[in-house]
Amino acid sequence: MKLLLLGIGNVLFADEGIGVHFLHYMEENYRFSHPLHSLTLLDGGTLAQGLTPIISQFDEMLLVDTVNAAGANPGQVYFFDFDKAPAEIDWQGSAHEVEMLQTLTMMEMLGDRPKTWVLGVTPTRLEPMRLGLSPELLSVVPLMEEVVLKHLRSLGFEVERRQHRPIEELIPSAWQGQIPIHENS
């Protein structure tokens, strides 16, 4: 089996980038192995339909992104089979979220979509040119990590923790709004 862990999102819109940031966090901190299966980690950014030829090569995919959910609190984590999405998931969030839904639906119609799992979190802050994550989303990273690791272990993957770098360290300081200002004297 070929498994894809795909993080998508727009890192220029604060919490909208959780999928991408989380993917880099997992890639930096863990090593995964399986005697028969392969795992690929991919930063999909906001490509959606542009990812179709890549996604279609896999048997199973775990998609990490923000999700909109009626009545959900900011930072609420969802993990579900794409074919059995909870009723409160409305897929009407950002442009890339809607485009990703359309991409997965189109791939299903063509018979190219792999078995798809979604790890989604409801965003707190979607601000243009606000890089980094809100405290609410930072606080749910351990839960997201636990969900992914449990899923991968259920598929027989060995998980090795290589280091303990927090996700905040993996977001470049320019993205955190900490660009030094040099004044002319």
Rank of each mutant, 00 (worst) to 15 (best):
F13N: 03
G44P: 03
L101N: 08
L36R: 07
Q57F: 10
R153W: 01
L3E: 01
T122C: 14
V98G: 13
Y25R: 00
I54M: 04
R125G: 04
L6M: 01
P135Y: 03
V159H: 02
K2H: 09
M1P: 06
K84Y: 06
V147H: 11
P128M: 13
F22W: 14
F79H: 15
A72P: 09
Q163Y: 01
I167R: 04
L6Y: 01
F58L: 02
H164Y: 08
N73P: 00
A48W: 09
P123T: 04
K115Q: 07
L137E: 06
G9H: 07
E146G: 09
V98P: 00
K84L: 13
G19R: 02
L47E: 12
T52N: 03
I171D: 02
M129I: 13
V148C: 10
V11C: 14
A87K: 11
H151Y: 15
E160M: 06
N73D: 15
L126S: 11
G93N: 07
G120A: 13
G50K: 12
M1Q: 01
M1F: 03
T105V: 14
L23A: 04
H151T: 13
M26F: 09
N184P: 01
G19L: 11
P172A: 08
H21S: 05
E146W: 03
A95W: 10
S173M: 14
Q92S: 13
L5E: 02
I55Q: 06
M106V: 12
I8W: 04
I54W: 13
S56G: 09
T52W: 03
D59T: 05
L138R: 06
S38W: 02
Q176C: 11
I181E: 10
T122E: 10
V159M: 01
N184I: 15
H164F: 11
F22V: 09
H21M: 04
Q176K: 15
L155A: 04
P74H: 07
V148L: 10
L5F: 08
E88M: 01
D112A: 13
E145L: 07
